[in-house]
Design a protein around this nucleic acid. Structure first.
Lengths: 206, 206
DNA sequence: CTAAAACCTGACTTTTGGGTCAAGTTTTTT
DNA sequence: AAAAAACTTGACCCAAAAGTCAGGTTTTAG
């Protein structure tokens, strides 16, 4: 079967993701995507019928990892473990999928004009599940009374910033590339502040 | 003197800010800005010589409030007061300048292609001053040993998210408009978590 | 080996949107 | 009140970028 087709579509998708991440939807030219992988523009159109469709595929490719992130809230029944793993996972995603994350950020920044309704639905459900879990922990006295939704907003923002706003991060870290050490520092700092800030610091080691 | 000119330039600037915020630089059409304020496109060009120049003016209009934000780090010599005021101020900015904030976010997301060098310089200096202050407080035992830079990243992200990603915020808050109460909840939640998370909770009331 | 299917691409068309301009109208100055 | 200055705008131009396609080559199936 068309191994070639799938492989090539993937190459295009990756290049497209990077271009869309760096320039936004309107700012990206199909010709630039094509040049980046040394292909004539018409070849892109052989695999994807339009810019819109290509963009949609890029969006789709990130939904899977995005929906995986809330796993810790289902996996553990204790805030210290769940929050620790959630932060680790989200920073890991920022590290491994910076471009896809940027495309999503762009989308949300502009009011999610290209978001399919079913994805929105899935995301809201996930958020509800997470906030309910947090509220349970609060009710059971396992953590301080922190507004679960606003806590989540803060966690999302603080972790995704390492992908979305990495220009700024690199500027202030005075580095060309955010190193493993940097990501590790970010994770440790966040875990330290959030766990203590939620009143779950002293419980559980690793 | 040309009161009319200044007034009209301002109207255009406001409309431009909103359009650039919602669609990004490349995604914004001069014609849309013009339509929004019921003006023919050519009239925009009478006041601003090009799209680039108009955009630059929008950027400039936000630099002032942006640079004001770090005042609390100079004003106070205690982390509890400074952090509290800083969070309040940053949320206030997100509330009062959501569009300008989005334009900036967009800019940083895409690697700041339109940023003048002197602004970058000012921002890095401000950040240095803030991190130094935080480090002093840590050294003097006034707060826990938290990586100052990563703490700042987290504060920026957590506060700006209410402007930049307000689509998402509104979605999960299930509201058409982020209310004063919502902003207040956000502020309180953040202050609570950050102060306790930095080990400065018990000190100082108001 | 050959025919069909899949793939490739240079050259083209079409659409979009930034920018211009000449011929006005209105406002200000003297 | 008249001349100058400031303002307004419909109609146009043009470059850039999306999208098409005919006629080619390569791969695969039988």
């Amino acid at each position: 079967m068309s191994r070639i087709r799938d492989q090539k579509k993937n190459v295009i998708l990756n290049a497209a993701c990077e271009e869309f991440a760096n320039n936004g939807y309107a700012g990206t030219k199909i010709v630039d995507i094509a040049n980046k992988i040394h292909l004539p523009k018409a070849n892109i159109y052989y695999y994807f019928e339009s810019k819109q469709v290509l963009y949609r595929h890029v969006l789709d490719s990130f939904i899977q990892p995005l929906l995986m992130a809330t796993a810790p809230f289902d996996q553990y029944d204790h805030p210290a473990e769940a929050l620790t793993d959630y932060i680790k996972l989200k920073i890991e995603i920022s590290k491994n999928h910076p471009n896809a994350s940027k495309v999503f950020a762009n989308e949300i920044l502009h009011g999610a004009p290209h978001f399919p309704a079913d994805i929105v639905e899935k995301l809201t459900q996930q958020t509800s599940r997470a906030t309910e879990k947090l509220q349970q922990w609060i009710d059971r006295g396992l953590m301080d009374d922190i507004n679960p939704l606003h806590l989540l907003f803060s966690l999302w923002a603080s972790t995704q910033t390492y992908a979305d706003f990495n220009w700024q991060i690199k500027l202030h870290l005075k580095t060309e590339r955010i190193s493993d050490q940097n990501y590790s520092d970010a994770t440790d700092t966040l875990i330290k502040v959030i766990l203590k800030g939620c009143g779950v610091a002293a419980q559980v080691a690793k």
